[in-house]
């Protein structure tokens, strides 16, 4: 109680409880209640949500107090408040939705007795993630659910669940949704899933190599959508260049189909795509155990490639890029065509 709030003698836990009660009310579609009464309750709910946010984030006058945050977090996950928030989110107004999203995001990082209890809660309530991911199919909810989701997959177990779920396949479509803000949000989540938890990602990619890269190549790298190709080739570079994905990289750069796709990207008129494609292409060239068909493709295209690289520059001066390029040129120039043994 002691001065945690300017005037209200309610504890953070009290506010969580009240919010929960109001959410339960909002969740029930009680047709008999009068409209005005409902509006009143919804307004009160919004106000409570705002208060929770202020406790977690502070405001212009005060910094958040960790003790209060811990109390709030504990009470929040003691019962099904998170579920209620997620389920009722479409019933809130825009400002309350944004506040709620920020609360959920913040709670993922709050520790109670040095435990991230949000992670425990989500592990026991994985179906909530299904709702969040499904949000990408709902224009109105996508950005809110998407932001929540991205915070939730900070937890490794949650990320693993999503990676291994059927939802993973849907991301290939979400990334190309017509609404740019939603598609970009899905792309950001996709990237997070594939880069954040190294060991989990490596495990996922090894287990799911075939379908994943088949989809990745055909739906993303060969998409007709410029922005999809650009983001995909960038992410591919990030993934393959990650040390923890070394075996996946080796496998990827041994495929002539993959090489063909990357060479096509190298030829794009977009500088950004070209540069990103180069960062993947160089792995094919640098591979010291190139399969025969890779060597033969490179040899067959040698003069074209060398000509391309001669004029190939980044906008910014980039030493690393130049060094890589020199290396690639050297590798290709030194290649000898070989027959099958």
């Amino acid at each position: 109680m002691r001065g945690l709030f300017k005037s209200k003698p309610r504890t953070p836990a009290d506010i969580v409880r009240q919010t929960r009660d109001l959410l339960v009310y909002a969740d029930l579609n009680t047709p008999d209640t009068r409209e005005t009464k409902r509006e009143e309750k919804m307004a009160e709910l919004s106000k409570n949500i705002r208060e929770l946010k202020v406790i977690l984030y502070g405001n212009s006058e005060s910094e958040p107090v960790s003790e209060a945050c811990a109390q709030l977090t504990q009470e929040f996950f003691k019962e099904n408040t998170l579920r209620l928030v997620i389920v009722c989110l479409p019933k809130l107004n825009l400002e309350a939705r944004k506040d709620a999203t920020q609360i959920v995001a913040n709670l993922q990082r709050q520790q109670v007795q040095s435990r991230l209890i949000a992670s425990d809660y989500l592990e026991a309530n994985k179906d909530l993630l299904d709702i969040l991911i499904g949000g990408y199919e709902n224009t109105e909810m996508a950005l809110h659910y998407g932001a929540m989701l991205r915070e939730c997959i900070r937890h490794q177990t949650v990320a693993r669940y999503v990676l291994e779920s059927e939802h993973m396949k849907k991301f290939f479509d979400y990334i190309q949704l017509p609404n740019f803000d939603i598609a970009a949000d899905a792309a950001a989540t996709f990237k997070e899933l594939l880069t954040r938890h190294k060991s989990t990602v490596a495990e996922f990619l090894s287990k799911n190599y075939d379908w994943f890269f088949a989809e990745y190549n055909s739906k993303l790298l060969e998409s007709t959508n410029y922005i999809t190709r650009r983001q995909a080739v960038k992410l591919l570079g990030d993934i393959l260049l990650d040390r923890s994905n070394a075996t996946i990289m080796t496998r990827y750069v041994s495929s002539r189909d993959n090489l063909r796709i990357l060479m096509n990207l190298l030829r794009e008129s977009s500088k950004s795509i070209q540069i990103e494609a180069f960062h993947v292409f160089k792995l094919f060239a640098a591979n010291q155990n190139k399969p025969l068909d890779i060597i033969n493709i490179l040899v067959a295209n040698r003069s074209k490639l060398l000509r391309l690289f001669a004029d190939f520059k980044t906008d910014k001066e980039d030493e690393q890029f130049e060094a890589d390029k020199a290396q690639v040129v050297k590798e290709i120039a030194a290649l000898e065509p070989r027959d099958r043994p």
């Binding site: 400002e95 944004k98 740019f180 970009a184 922005i227």
Partner: peptide, 27 residues
């Protein structure tokens, strides 16, 4: 690109009579 994404997102979540927001955006 990430900056553009964040800004577009911010814009689509703003709603105030005195703030110019985006109706939608697409490539």
């Amino acid at each position: 690109f990430d900056d553009i994404r964040r800004e577009i997102k911010t814009m689509s979540l703003l709603s105030h009579p005195n703030v110019l927001n985006a109706h939608c955006s697409f490539t």
